[in-house]
């Protein structure tokens, strides 16, 4: 008699308790993943701002050596102000893509100026720029990794049930907007 009451009691209390603990565990995992996604996104933001800050420095250092490259400088400055003024995420992605393109064009032009390439200040700015470009790329890579984990968790059973209950929604990947960055650069000898 006594033992059967105990068993019923355990089933009535134990199973819901386990279920609650299970739900709490999954909920916390989802929150942790979402925070990681947000953190990765803010990393991209930090590095993009840093790129904007570097550009005046770069232009200032290079201007004296590259008197005949007015167009290149203008393209960079314009792309920078557009990127800084971007309001929405898609706008920002587009503008940043254009800025990246302008910068890589500039780096190609630099090859024609051996004096500039030997300048210590320019080398320092160039290293900072390379570092920042890489950091943007790696931040994007890390963000996309985190989004993949998060989206997988949201879509897979049984965490999809809990995600649905508490309104966790899928995040978008940060894709490269400019087609040129995706393609392998073509070399022509004309």
């Amino acid at each position: 008699m006594g033992t059967s009451i105990l068993i019923v009691f355990l089933i009535l209390v134990g199973i819901p308790l386990l279920l609650i603990l299970f739900v709490i565990g999954i909920y916390n995992a989802l929150v942790r993943l979402r925070n990681q996604v947000d953190n990765a996104w803010s990393q991209i933001d930090v590095q993009l701002k840093r790129r904007h800050d570097l550009i005046p420095n770069l232009v200032e250092t290079a201007k004296g050596y590259m008197k005949h490259e007015r167009g290149t400088f203008e393209a960079i400055t314009q792309a920078r102000s557009q990127a800084m003024g971007a309001k929405t995420v898609s706008e920002a992605a587009k503008a940043e893509g254009a800025l990246g393109e302008a910068l890589s064009k500039f780096m190609l032009v630099v090859e024609n100026y051996p004096d500039l390439k030997a300048n210590q200040n320019f080398l320092a700015v160039q290293e900072e720029l390379t570092g920042t470009e890489n950091k943007i790329a790696f931040a994007r890579q890390s963000y996309n990794d985190q989004v993949l984990f998060f989206n997988n968790k949201i879509q897979m059973f049984p965490s999809n049930i809990i995600a649905g209950m508490f309104g966790f929604t899928k995040r978008d990947f940060f894709e490269i907007e400019v087609a040129a960055e995706r393609e392998v650069p073509k070399v022509s000898f004309s």
Binding site: G131, T132, K135, F138
Partner: peptide
């Protein structure tokens, strides 16, 4: 050594 610093920070970001 700015380059070493940048490279470490790049990998720190990549690894989260």
């Amino acid at each position: 050594h700015p380059q070493l610093f940048n490279v470490v920070e790049e990998m720190k970001i990549a690894a989260g």
